[in-house]
Amino acid sequence: MNEQQTMLADMAGSLFSALSHGATVAADWGRIEEMGFAGLLLGEEEGGFGGGWADAGIVFRLAGYHALALPLVEAVVAARLAADAGFAGDGFGTLAEKTEGGIDDGGFTGFLKGVAWGREAGYVVAPSPSGGAMILSPRDAVIEKRQNAADEPRDILRFSGAPVVPVDADIFALGAAARSMQMAGALDAALELAVGYVNDRKQFGKPLGKLQAVQQALAVFACEAAAANSAAVGVAQALDRGDASFEVAAAKARANMAAGLGTSIGHQAHGAIGFTHEYGLHPLTRRLWSWRSEFGGEHHWTMLLGTRIAAAGADNFWAEMVRRSDPVA
């Protein structure tokens, strides 16, 4: 991290750690706004922070690490896309995971699914039925409140002939990239809790962490957390370079794999205490289970990747993968 990124991480870390999973939009969104986090991906001339995806990746990882119960990552991405579309919305923007319906005479009829904090958002960026993305106002919608397995709002918004502003973006891919960064942070936090717990908790006259069976399991968890974190950094680098279609698929698939093992080992290491509502493991693991499905499960992304690679041909797989991160000659 450079100096500016270290400052950003310090600011984000201390705020998110104070807010954590008890935060609410009503009580706490103002503090996010005060710090200017929503403008992370906006240029300084657009009133933003002037950051790139590498910077966003640091903040998104910390949002996951602290199980931040606010639509921060969605608002950051939505603000960037709104600026691209020349759309000035009030309040914070959010993302929809899926769209069903059609656009007729410039009006959208249908519904958006998986809208994070849709009930409180000022605008929502969603996949468009005619390709790319579109911006809609939740004020035009009938809102059905839903939540994911971590109790994070994931609303359904129904529209009938609502006005849309088109924007060129792959929302599903951007959402997947953002989730892979949050998952990287949540995995590191769950690992840290597990390591701390087994070093404290004594059974058989010694800390659990002295038992080889426990050590070996946590080493596997550490490898998985490391893989998810590396994938998250890699996808941010690719987004900053431009086309990240390959890297998003690879990173979200890898984060999903890591979440499967990490949640399982994390709970096993904690025993019964990790299963209680009082203890702080579930805000991380329930988010990991939820995020593992959001914006594409493992099968979705591995099929996409596999189909693309098979179509390009066996002798192009390696050459194409490495070309993507080489400087343009």
């Binding site: 950094v233 890699g234 690879a250 698939a253 591995t302 690679i309 993968m321």
Partner: peptide, 16 residues
Amino acid sequence: LALIGKLASEVWTLRQ
């Protein structure tokens, strides 16, 4: 196809 995608995801990550 899914296996190819899984292996590509892991190979790409390990290269990182």
